[in-house]
């Protein structure tokens, strides 16, 4: 797989900023908001990626994924649980037949600073434990050195190892420098087998923004217009408020259209977003502003 198959168009940064400013000035109300909140819940990859993760914590998170708020049986489950490879079997067992998928971060997450052998072994561990989805990180060091073919080959190799599991490629946009670089990395990932492109690891302060998400969605759109194939998108990190999540959904609808508004094609990587959505949902149903005191701690 080579990078010469495509050429990334330059990104109009001012245009993007203007577009996002207009989106964030809008708000969704009443019944539309309720539907948006339910949709956002169904798209969450409930995530715990801590050194301190224990079997107990992962099990608890899996329970939460299936019982977001039993007071409202109409609420959907979240889309997936996102954990380290060593926790995949724990999550798989805890989730049973619930339909909630298990995603595992692999390839020397979060830095990606290791050899291809180690990355493949890491991926294999996650797959052997039963992961449905693999979240890989690209080698940002190599990318920034201009070795795009190295990054492309790596993605293609991991994709091959994934078999049926869907591959999410984390670009870690906060380390790429500019929106043009984000576009370039998106194209490399898309043309080399990514099923999802994902903004961030959540491990550095500069996580997902509407701006980089817009650029990545445009890359997905251009690929779709060229080849007719759909690629999924996952912003991750720093999305903890419902209002922001709804803005993301608006952006997806604007750039890609309704086809992408399902959890097969769009996800949020988040740990605390679910609780805020529940707060807002309960407010819409019951009236009165809610308190996190009355919802489960993550």
């Amino acid at each position: 797989m080579q990078t010469s198959k495509y050429s990334s168009p330059p990104v109009d940064q001012v245009g993007i900023e203007d577009r996002i400013a207009r989106i964030t000035a809008r708000s969704i109300k009443s019944s539309m908001k309720v539907e948006g909140l339910k949709m956002a819940l169904s798209m969450i990859d409930l995530t715990t990626l801590e050194g301190a993760d224990t079997v107990g914590k992962v099990t608890q998170l899996c329970t939460k994924a299936q019982h977001l708020c039993d007071e409202f049986p109409e609420l959907p489950n979240v889309a997936a649980i996102c954990v380290y490879p060593s926790m995949v079997n724990v999550a798989k067992q805890a989730l049973g037949e619930s339909g909630v998928k298990v995603a595992a971060v692999a390839t020397a997450f979060p830095s990606g600073q290791s050899s291809l052998e180690v990355k493949l072994t890491d991926t294999k561990l996650a797959l052997d434990n039963g992961a449905d989805e693999i979240d890989m990180v690209i080698s940002r060091g190599k990318f920034l050195q201009g070795e795009c073919n190295f990054v492309a080959d790596e993605i293609a190799t991991i994709k091959e190892a994934c078999g049926k599991a869907r591959l999410k490629v984390i670009l870690e946009t906060g380390e790429l420098g500019s929106l043009d670089q984000v576009r370039k990395a998106s194209d490399i990932a898309i043309y080399n087998g990514a099923d999802f492109i994902k903004t961030s690891t959540g491990k550095i302060p500069k996580a997902a923004t509407l701006h980089v998400t817009c650029v990545m969605l445009e890359a997905i759109r251009d690929y779709y217009l060229t080849t007719g194939k759909m690629i999924a998108m996952k912003p991750a990190g720093g999305i903890s408020k419902s209002k922001l999540a709804l803005h993301y959904l608006m952006l997806v609808k604007e750039v890609l259209g309704d086809k992408w508004l399902t959890n097969e094609w769009f996800r949020f990587g988040a740990s605390s977003l679910a609780n805020d959505v529940l707060l807002q949902y309960r407010k819409a149903q019951v009236g009165g502003y809610q308190s996190p005191d009355y919802f489960s701690i993550d």
Partner: peptide, 8 residues
């Protein structure tokens, strides 16, 4: 009414 009904 908002003062008194706010859960937080």
């Amino acid at each position: 009414s908002h003062f008194s009904s706010h859960m937080d």
